[in-house]
Amino acid sequence: MVDTASQQVDRAAMRRERWRLFTRTLRDNWRLFVGSKIGPIGLGIVIFFVLFSASYPIFMAVTHNPRIYDPVTGFDYDLMPTSNPHPPTWSHPLGTDVYGRDILSQLMYSSGHDLLLGLIAAGAGVLLATLVGSIAAFYGGIVDMFFMRVADIMMLFPFLATLVALSALMNVSLLMLAIFLAILTGFGTTSIILRSQALQVKVKPFVEAARVSGGSNFHIIWSHIVPNVLPLSFLYMMFSVTGAIFTEAALAFLGFLNVRMSLGIIIQNANTSGYLIGTRLATYWYMWLPAGAVISLICAGFYFVGRGLDEVVNPRLRER
């Protein structure tokens, strides 16, 4: 090289520069996210529920007696057995259900499990969808055809009926449901959306530039197509969390899931014991309203975060 070769690069300065530019990018994106207004509200809700459910094991270990506060087997002998369900008191801020179990600890227990289920199902599903979409778009032809026909099958899959049949054959746990939903989103709708994004990326000249540089198919998919699909993947991950939690609540309500306690089961208990009828609905509000509100809020939280991310990911949505 020319005279510049003699100048050694100042590596420490370079690392500082890299860090500065990296944090600047983060800061810019954060500003866009905050600017969307709806995004931070969603993030606040999600963080609240994460803390809400994370505090449950701490309460159980420190202040709460598991004999009283266990979501399934707990019973408060201080309240008369006949007086259940009991309206809110200081020791049971959201009252007790028909079996004398503390509703607040049921909520805390199940919202944690629901968050986990939603994140696992959406995370695994979108990871799968990103890979399937990128690979289908990149290779095209028979590979593309195969994955897209699989996607068609997944979209038309009668999954509720399948789950009913499955729950008759075996105990469907939360993890199994998460895997089931992940496969549905991973090979289904989300993979079609991410494939179309990957198709746009695939024809960009930088893919050709990578090819000229000797990059293998794996290199091109992994370091050029996937990074350009990933922002959209995150967006759809947020939206599919919502779907997963809704599905779980619905299935638990219908009694198809083998779970100890769940938001859907809380409402189901209220329903089967006859407290969701007529004027009782208002009197026994604490039996169904908190659980319903938690489902709605968690779903809204993730949806709002998704909308906020949409603003960051989709430059066309930005106000100029």
Binding site: R18, L21, K204, P205, F206, E208, A209, A210, S213, G214, G215, S216, H219, S223, H224, P227, N228
Partner: peptide, 20 residues
């Protein structure tokens, strides 16, 4: 269009070196 918008100039210029 000939540069990946998600890569820094370092990544772009070092790509042939890294590949080989």
């Amino acid at each position: 269009e000939s540069m990946n918008p998600r890569k820094t100039l370092y990544d772009i210029i070092a790509e042939p070196l890294a590949v080989h």
